[in-house]
Simulated scan of single mutants.
Amino acid sequence: MEILDGAIVKRLLSTATTSAVYTAAQQSADWGAPRGPGDTLFIRIFQLSALVGRGAPKTVTLTI
């Protein structure tokens, strides 16, 4: 999963499960403070497989 600021990737998160955690410390490092109510977060998600590798991305906007 990529955390985006426009076209710039601020952070790359990887997980072997169906969820990932973007910690307050990571958010502070990336944005100067944790994201809060009314903020948006743009993410691009990829599924990885041993056969295909990195699949087609899905980009979503989350409103906190």
Rank of each mutant, 00 (worst) to 15 (best):
P34V: 07
L41I: 12
A25V: 02
V60N: 07
I43S: 03
F42S: 11
T40Q: 06
W31A: 01
G38R: 10
Q27D: 01
F42R: 15
A25G: 02
V60R: 12
R35I: 01
A29D: 12
F46A: 00
L48H: 11
A25S: 08
I64Y: 15
L62W: 13
P37Q: 10
I43Q: 09
K58D: 01
G38C: 02
G36D: 05
Q26Y: 06
G32A: 04
K58S: 02
R35Q: 04
P57M: 04
P37T: 12
D30W: 09
Q26S: 03
F46Q: 01
T59N: 02
A56I: 14
P34A: 14
R35T: 00
T61N: 08
V52T: 15
I45W: 10
A25Y: 04
A24N: 09
L51C: 03
S28E: 09
I45C: 03
R44H: 04
V60F: 07
A33K: 14
D39P: 05
A33C: 02
R35K: 15
G32V: 09
W31H: 15
S28L: 11
G53Y: 15
Q26K: 09
Y22R: 05
G32T: 04
Q26C: 00
Q26R: 12
Q47D: 09
Y22F: 05
S49D: 06
T40L: 02
F46D: 00
A29C: 04
W31S: 00
F46R: 07
A50F: 15
F46Y: 15
G32I: 06
S28D: 02
L62I: 13
R44K: 13
T61D: 02
L48A: 02
S28M: 07
Y22T: 00
T59E: 07
P34H: 12
L62T: 04
T61A: 02
A33S: 11
G36H: 10
L51M: 03
D39Q: 08
G32L: 07
I64G: 02
T59R: 13
G38E: 03
V52Y: 15
A50I: 12
F42W: 15
R35Y: 06
V52I: 14
R35W: 06
D39V: 03
F42L: 10
A50E: 13
D30M: 11
A24L: 08
L41R: 13
R44M: 02
T63Y: 10
S28V: 10
D30E: 12
A24Y: 09
A50W: 14
A29M: 13
V60I: 11
R54H: 08
T59Y: 08
P34N: 09
F46I: 00
I64W: 14
K58L: 12
P37C: 06
A25H: 06
R54M: 05
I43T: 10
A50Y: 14
D30I: 09
L48T: 05
P37M: 05
T61Y: 09
Q26N: 05
L62R: 14
T63E: 06
